[in-house]
């Protein structure tokens, strides 16, 4: 993958990906600063999702990063230098509860419709729109489940497909690994 490229859904996301949750000030241009940093330093992004938090002053950016493109510690320390970045937490895949949303319009004429609907039922998705020759499906779930579903519906013919990129929270039974601890004595509180 080219440096700083954004991987497609279902890309080779695995042990080499980590989830970095970045709390940023809700100000104009902040996403560009974060994205620009990844581009400039040659860090790869698998997926990226942005949304406001419960505190309107801040937004949360969930980035799935390729830790083979650069050491995670370096990515986090560079992010921490951005003045608008307020907090960073890092989740290894096994420590995270991850979810992603998929919308897909699938070719499904009268003959195939039943099979598709059955598949949607198995995966606990929802039919959100129905046309004569196609239906639109929504499915939320763990990213690997979304991958499986996508592979199974692909043979029917995908008209359009959109995935949100994953969002994540730490699993409750484990502790969040935060920058303040993983960076040890060297990286506590970033100098700008």
């Amino acid at each position: 993958m080219a440096p700083s490229s954004i991987g497609g859904p279902g890309g080779p996301v695995g042990v080499r990906h980590h989830i970095v949750t970045v709390t940023v000030e809700n100000k104009a241009g902040v996403l560009a600063r974060v994205a620009g940093l990844f581009s400039r330093r040659g860090f790869n992004i698998f997926s990226l999702a942005v949304a406001p938090t419960d505190d309107e002053r801040f937004s949360r950016i969930t980035i799935v990063v390729d830790v083979e493109s650069a050491p995670l510690e370096q990515i986090i320390r560079q992010l921490d230098k951005l003045v608008n970045v307020v907090a960073i937490s890092e989740l290894a895949p096994e420590e995270a509860t991850e979810r992603e949303l998929l919308l897909a319009t699938v070719e499904a004429g009268p003959d195939e419709r039943g099979q598709v609907i059955q598949l949607v039922g198995v995966f606990e998705g929802r039919i959100v729109d129905v046309g004569r020759e196609a239906i639109t499906i929504m499915l939320a779930g763990a990213p690997n489940k979304i991958d499986d579903f996508e592979n199974l519906i692909r043979p029917f013919g995908i008209v359009e497909l959109q995935r949100t990129g994953r969002v994540a929270l730490p699993k409750l039974e484990r502790r969040t690994t935060r920058l303040r601890t993983i960076a040890g004595g060297a990286g506590e509180d970033g100098a700008g």
């Binding site: 370096q74 060297a186 990286g187 506590e188």
Partner: peptide, 18 residues
């Protein structure tokens, strides 16, 4: 270094002090 991102950027440090 005052900039933690410099520590370990090029050469691993045995003792890194921000």
């Amino acid at each position: 270094d005052i900039d933690p991102a410099e520590l370990g950027k090029v050469r691993r440090a045995d003792v890194a002090i921000a």
